[in-house]
Amino acid sequence: MDSQATVKVESVDRKVGIDYALVDINKTVLAYADKTVNSSLSGTFGGGRGGPPQIVLGVGDVVQVAIFEAQSGGLFIPADAGSRPGNYISLPKQTIDREGNITVPYAGKVKASGRPVDQVQLDIASRLANRAIEPQVVISIDQSRSMEASVLGDVKTPKKIELSPAGERILDLISEAGGLSAPGTETTVTLQRRSRSVTVPYDVVSKTPAENIYAQPGDTLIVNRERRTFLAFGVTGESGRYDFDDSNLTLGDALAKAGGLLDDKAEPQAVLVYRIVDKDFLHKIGVNTQGFTSKDVPVIFRANLRDPSGFFMAQKFPMQNKDVIYVSTSPSVEFLKFLTIVNSATSSASNIADTRRSIRNR
């Protein structure tokens, strides 16, 4: 192969040159391993507890203002209006402009965007107090364009959803969009809010009440089907790529899916999991990271299944999407390979000597 290559590029000693950390799976690692599996909606945005977010007016909302006076003969109600069903007028519907204002006669431009309805009502009433007779103001929202959240991706009916004062949570939005169009175990939920974005598995949101946070105006929820898999190589029952089929897959479960370890060939002391982790995780478990310049660090987690406690560790160590499991070969197998080679060489030499004797005897 080398002799036929037009150009040959080799590393020194044929090493790839990627720095990595080797970490034994122990109690300290397990204490933080669960926290590295998923990001958190509640941890990033809050909103998992307490009441729903306050509904405020926004640019683009269409509102109608009604002004009541205590009696006729005031600013808006003429003196001859005694036959009317009520001492009020309804102003024409108007859209909150780009500056966030609405216009009310004799009150001028009133700031509406970013304020709850009751505050705007009181503001208008106070501006009219010196002209109208005990004015009262009621604002009704005809179209709420600013109080919407979008649901996109692998749902049955992607749409914009108007948020109500009662408050909608993440699962409420997905439900209003028709529900998932893919299995929950293969689905992730990405919440984009202002300049931040967090992705979590759907099963985490559905099984953890604190993660089912309230939606806020302007949120974009992207539901995405993502096939979560891991690779198994080395001395396992069957190497290959496997689906998780479970949001809480552990190393023990993954080894079982791959057929376990071959008893006569595998080295139980060297069950390895290859993964890229955040440098902060290594800080937490006491690993010196000065030798790594990047925030993401290649890590090999090693499980020792010769130690009985290693099986408990394997059953608690959580797998992540795109992990690679490698089970190394037992040293005894390598020794047997060596003996086989030696035996083969010895047999070949013996056969050659026998052949030469046979020729001479002829």
Rank of each mutant, 00 (worst) to 15 (best):
residue 296 D to T: 14
residue 261 L to G: 03
residue 280 D to M: 15
residue 265 K to P: 00
residue 265 K to T: 03
residue 258 A to D: 04
residue 241 R to N: 08
residue 291 G to C: 06
residue 249 L to E: 02
residue 240 G to N: 12
residue 272 L to T: 07
residue 246 D to S: 12
residue 253 D to H: 12
residue 282 L to M: 14
residue 277 V to W: 10
residue 241 R to K: 13
residue 264 D to M: 09
residue 259 G to R: 11
residue 286 G to P: 05
residue 244 F to N: 08
residue 296 D to M: 13
residue 280 D to P: 10
residue 276 I to H: 07
residue 264 D to T: 09
residue 285 I to H: 14
residue 255 L to Y: 02
residue 288 N to K: 11
residue 270 A to N: 10
residue 242 Y to T: 02
residue 282 L to P: 12
residue 253 D to Y: 02
residue 268 P to K: 12
residue 260 G to D: 09
residue 269 Q to S: 04
residue 287 V to N: 06
residue 294 S to W: 11
residue 257 K to G: 00
residue 270 A to C: 05
residue 241 R to Q: 13
residue 266 A to P: 03
residue 249 L to I: 08
residue 280 D to K: 15
residue 291 G to H: 11
residue 243 D to H: 05
residue 270 A to M: 15
residue 284 K to Q: 15
residue 258 A to N: 03
residue 257 K to S: 00
residue 246 D to Y: 07
residue 276 I to N: 07
residue 240 G to P: 02
residue 250 T to N: 09
residue 282 L to S: 13
residue 257 K to H: 05
residue 277 V to D: 08
residue 282 L to H: 14
residue 267 E to W: 09
residue 289 T to K: 10
residue 290 Q to G: 09
residue 292 F to D: 01
residue 266 A to Y: 02
residue 253 D to L: 03
residue 264 D to C: 08
residue 258 A to H: 06
residue 292 F to S: 02
residue 278 D to A: 12
residue 258 A to V: 08
residue 244 F to G: 02
residue 242 Y to P: 00
residue 292 F to I: 01
residue 288 N to T: 13
residue 255 L to E: 00
residue 244 F to Y: 11
residue 272 L to V: 03
residue 241 R to I: 10
residue 265 K to W: 03
residue 271 V to D: 01
residue 272 L to C: 06
residue 283 H to E: 07
residue 285 I to G: 09
residue 286 G to H: 06
residue 260 G to F: 08
residue 252 G to C: 00
residue 251 L to V: 04
residue 293 T to D: 06
residue 293 T to M: 02
residue 285 I to M: 14
residue 244 F to P: 03
residue 245 D to V: 07
residue 253 D to V: 02
residue 258 A to C: 07
residue 266 A to M: 04
residue 278 D to K: 13
residue 268 P to V: 10
residue 254 A to T: 01
residue 254 A to Y: 00
residue 261 L to E: 06
residue 254 A to S: 04
residue 279 K to I: 00
residue 269 Q to D: 01
residue 276 I to V: 13
